[in-house]
Write a protein that binds this DNA or RNA. Structure first.
Lengths: 144, 144
DNA sequence: GGAAAAATCATCCTTTCGGCTGATGCGAAA
DNA sequence: TTTCGCATCAGCCGAAAGGATGATTTTTCC
């Protein structure tokens, strides 16, 4: 697991533990009667669930559908050019008009990583900028 | 005629007149025998012809073929969006992967003018960057 | 288990892009 | 003659893109 992801999980785990401990202390210290134990646990459960959903999505980094479900990239050209699965994902995002930052946010990776992928793509497609890369990718049948 | 174009023609005209006058002076002053009059006139003719070709292209600013001779842009959409002839030309250049500077050099206009056209195109196509504009233009059938 | 490929991330720097604002001239139509 | 659309041009500024260089970790395959 990438260090930044691990750090994020550790950070959130610690934060959750601190929050839970704090709530427990509040419960013991003041013994608030109209806020029952069930409600407290419900709040904690909600917060944990939300964080879990976010962490789960980040860990899985599911592939975003490009919007043309019937299109299949030319596997032969992909193999010939040695375009990896991740590079193709970034290429599809570019084809949708996304900026590098938007691609990073969508795929839950850093801006630096996106720039590495786009730079590698430019080399493989013999392009110097994204409009050229997209034109060539379409000619080769890599994107719709 | 734009002031910059007029200035260019005046500049070249003056330069040509000065060159011709200078050659005439050289001819009278030294009477170089091994360089006949015919050769001098030939050199002058070549220079003038080259400049004339360049000036002629610049004045006419002929439309550059995009490379898909069978494609016809959707005239209905062009009219509906009020995309002018020049804006369409710039759009086609963008679709070929050219930078703004390259478009300016190709169409013999300034970088500022290209930026004005691309900005207007973005507004009409409801895009914020050229990859979005190109995607939308293709969807509307404005470019191949 | 080890090697290679893939994926990830960072930093620095230059160039390009794009928004904003402002401007002038030409040609056609009213 | 005036108005309007189009084409042209400029400058400033911040953001984004892209090249170069370097690095570590994970995944895959032998």
């Amino acid at each position: 697991m990438r260090s930044s992801v691990r750090n994020t999980i550790l950070l959130y785990g610690s934060a959750m533990a601190a929050l839970f401990t704090g709530l427990k202390l509040v419960e013991y210290r003041f013994l608030v009667k109209d806020l029952s134990l069930e409600i407290l646990l419900g709040v904690v459960a909600l917060v944990f669930a939300a964080v879990g959903v976010w962490a789960g999505r980040r860990l899985s980094r599911q592939r975003i559908i490009t919007g043309d479900p019937d299109f299949r990239p030319n596997q032969q050209e992909l193999d010939r050019l040695h375009i990896s699965r991740r590079e193709l994902e970034v290429l599809e995002m570019m084809a949708r008009g996304l900026s590098n930052k938007e691609i990073a946010d969508t795929l839950y990776i850093s801006l630096s990583t996106v720039k590495t992928h786009t730079s590698n793509l430019f080399q493989k497609l013999e392009a110097g900028r994204r409009t050229q890369a997209l034109r060539r990718a379409r000619e080769l049948g890599l994107i719709p």
